[in-house]
Structure formats: structure tokens, C-alpha cells
Write a protein that binds this DNA or RNA. Sequence first.
DNA 1: ACCACGATGAACT
DNA 2: GTTCATCGTGGTC
Length: 221
Amino acid sequence: MNKKINIFTDKKFNPESYILTRSFYERDTEVVAKELLGKILLVKPQENDARGEFCAGRIVDIEAYYGANDPASHAYNGVTPRSRIMFETPGIAYVYFCYGNHYIINAVSEKYGIPGAAMIRAVEPLSGLDLMYERRKTDSLTNLSSGPGKLTMAFGINKDFNGLDLTRADSKVIIIDASKLNLIPGKEKTEIISCPRIGIKNGADKLLRFYIKGNNFASHK
DNA sequence: ACCACGATGAACT
DNA sequence: GTTCATCGTGGTC
């Protein structure tokens, strides 16, 4: 068991003062995606978790998706029942089911009415690792959350998380600013690599995937 | 018909 | 240890 960070197991931990605000997300999607690198994804203890630990992970790999000019985006063809949420209030979660197997979580960006989302591709596990190993049915630390479907499985994120407000302290899922906490990861200088997004056909020319260079938990190097 | 994925196994170094 | 091919799965349009 990993004990290097235990702040999230403290019942007195109050994430409210660290939470990213609406204005953070209400900007250009590429900027939001890049700046989300190093921030911490937090999922609060769920009903079936007797330990009552937060699941926490540092975002190390992310992609930006736009709208009408981005053929890889779910919002490319305008508002549909699924894409509608990408046009809504920045700072909410867009969670969708993929390939009949996996859930994928995005943070909605841009002003209300403008589509955009940052898809979280990988996180570096910080807390709640026992639960992650159980859910992922693996013994490999670097296999816990090194992919968009893997991290949602590790964190217990499913379609019920769609539309939750990442900026509200009472949400099951939030994103906080790591630099305000005394955490070891992320203190070192970080270089951001830009490259084409993974697993798409149209729009593959755009360099809209960003990851932290050299990080062992990125979804692929 | 199309997919912004993951697990597995084969076939390579 | 890598890379490649394949398939399961279900929502969307």
C-alpha cells in the first residue's frame, strides 16, 4: 500500500479552498487542457467504500476537443442529445460511454453556448490506491489509471457523473489546484509535450493532446 | 456503420 | 520489452 500521500484520507480535509473555479474553465479549450495538467482529480468516497478514502490523481495526460471546426469532436455536428452538454456551463463533467466497455471523463470548457471539453487521458494515482487496485483487478501501479477508460474504472466514475459540477465542493467529483497543497508530485519543473490526439481519424493533424514529458503514468509515450 | 478504448495473445526484437 | 491485430461491447446518428 502506498503511504506517501495521506492528506486525502484525513476526515478534516476540506477541498473547498483548493477547488478550481468556473472562470478557470470559461476559456479557450486548449488553454484549459494545458493548465489542467498537474491539477488533481478527486472523487469522494462512495457508498460502497467502507474505507471512506478520496480517490485522487494528478492529471498528466489530456486532450482538447472543440466544436464545428473539429471533426474529431462529439460536438462537430452541433447539438445532439449526447453533445448537448459540451455546449453547457463550463466546469461541469462530460462523461460518456465508449465502445460498450468504458467511461470517459471530460471537463467542459468555453463560455456557455460554445462547445468545448478537455478529455482526461491519464492521472498519476495519489490516494485511494487500494480501491483502485481492486476495481482495476491489477497489481501494476502504472496500469491503474494510465488511460481514459482505466482511470474512470479506477475512480469509480460512471454515467451518473455526467453533468456534475466540478467547481462545487459538494459534487462527487471535483478538480483542485495541486500547487496549493504540499504534495511532492508536480513540484519539479514540468515540460508539456503537444502531439496529435489518440485514436481518432478526422482531425488527426491538430496537436491537441498534451502530456507531462517523462511521466510514467501518461497513457503512452 | 461508426467509434476519443482495453485486454489479450502473437510475433517480433 | 515491445508492437500489432483482433474483438467485445453498446450508444449515437
